[in-house]
Design a protein around this nucleic acid. Structure first.
Lengths: 253, 253
DNA sequence: ACAATAGTGTCTGTCAGACATTATATG
DNA sequence: CATATAATGTCTGACAGACACTATTGT
């Protein structure tokens, strides 16, 4: 039995030695990332204008091929794409789903692993077009309500909608939008972000109660002075961003 | 501008004509399916014994390469794998996530798109080993509590655990386990299935209330006669299996 | 009648919505 | 002081858990 196991092991080694991946058709496999941020109080998604064929000149979600030498895992590819386009290194980044089929890319059967990221871009003031830190492709922060009707490359319109829907869905029962905030923020600002994502109004008391009582946010001790009563500033509590509340938020009447 | 667009279109066609996918390394991409069913009142997962290298002789989740000619989408590949191993055509089937990396398969950088399926196998009585309808690979329905400590091929132990965790998670706030039931069943049977999956006891009244009041199940009109008071039989209501209840189930004290 | 399982009545606890009220800045 | 926004008090309602109770069969 031991000899047989040894034989199997040697046979497997021989099999792998002879194995040539190029003999087998494998779908094109890519990673795409929908990067969300709040720009001028609007929820925006990062789009890049493709500088190469196919779909040259069209806007698309950042993404591309896996670097088999440099990327240890799919998540590493997603982090790399995010960093290449934004310079951001520690965002909230999560997988949405994979979409694959025969006709979604003119180059053939393809699979994309879709991620979404949340980053704080409120420190950057210029809107719309800017140039990314490590590439010269034109970059566009498109408000999501405009992006839904843009003619994006490949099936990226569909990918974008799926990522947005996932963000909206999780915003109802987690504290995920905290990933879009700066270090310190007021609860009114945070509520506006939730409302921007969900496109509905939320009840102030319930909103504050669930965020404070859950420990998702804690007072920083500072206050923001506006035209009137100063607002307490908060920062992230010691709770994971995708902490699940016992019930979902509803729109107010 | 129109002429330029025409030029771009012709240039894109030329690009695609010249494009040869084999020039570019693309990860091995596969679809794996964790197929769950209740066998003898236990939650089991379908494993097949691999008859080819690599990992020959080890048990693995059913799965394999995409048939680029025959499968229109990833979901089609998953349905095909399920059908090949079980003959089942209309199960609950949903994507869990994709796992990819450089070292998970000895053949090189690989990605697998993981699905899980729920099927009703209670009509089939023989346990353990049987032969699948369309292949001669040995098939094993392994109780999940045994499967978690089996030495599965590749990273399938990890994949299996992720699929199981997803099933457990959704069982707390949806009616997903209905996908494991026969046409008609009693609420006590259904509760046992929930309890088997969650490995905790549930409170009878709350359980019945949420399933009946939500419309997830409706009385079929038949009764099951046992040793004592007959039990009303139910069937699926007109509610999607992944209908989300307002709150999660908890274990009883 | 008894055993055993099916099924219900009803109280409590938790947490979100409603909405009126109080608090505290600036001009 | 007026006004605008911040923040709270407190009632209601939905829904899950607890648990005792009643119902209906076979033996």
């Amino acid at each position: 039995v031991n000899a047989s196991a040894m034989g199997d092991k040697r046979a497997e080694e021989a099999f792998l030695q002879r194995y040539d991946r190029r003999q087998f058709a494998s779908p094109l496999t890519t990673v795409d990332v929908a990067i969300f941020s709040i720009v001028n109080a609007e929820l925006c998604v990062l789009l890049i204008e493709r500088s190469n064929f196919p779909a040259k000149g069209q806007f698309a979600l950042p993404g591309g091929f896996i670097d088999e030498a440099g990327d240890a895992t799919l998540l590493a590819t997603a982090y790399r794409k995010l960093y290449e386009k934004t310079g951001v290194t520690a965002p909230h980044l999560e997988q949405v789903e994979s979409i694959g089929g025969a006709v979604r890319d003119p180059r053939g059967w393809s699979v994309t692993v879709l991620y979404f990221a949340l980053i704080d871009r409120s420190a950057v003031s210029e809107v719309s077009v800017s140039v990314s830190p490590t590439s010269t492709e034109p970059v566009l922060w498109a408000p999501v309500n405009e992006a839904v009707s843009m003619d994006l490359a490949f099936d990226h319109q569909d990918l974008f909608r799926r990522a947005l829907e996932r963000l909206r869905s999780k915003t109802r029962y987690t504290a995920l939008p905290l990933g879009l905030m700066q270090n310190e923020f007021t609860l009114t600002e945070l509520q506006h972000v939730f409302e921007t994502i969900l496109e509905v109004g939320l009840e102030k008391k319930s909103f504050r109660r669930r965020l404070i009582d859950s420990g998702a946010v804690v007072e920083s001790g500072n206050v923001q002075h506006g035209v009137h009563r100063p607002a307490a500033m908060y920062r992230l509590g010691n709770v994971p961003l995708d902490f699940v509340f016992p019930r979902s938020l509803q729109a107010i009447a």
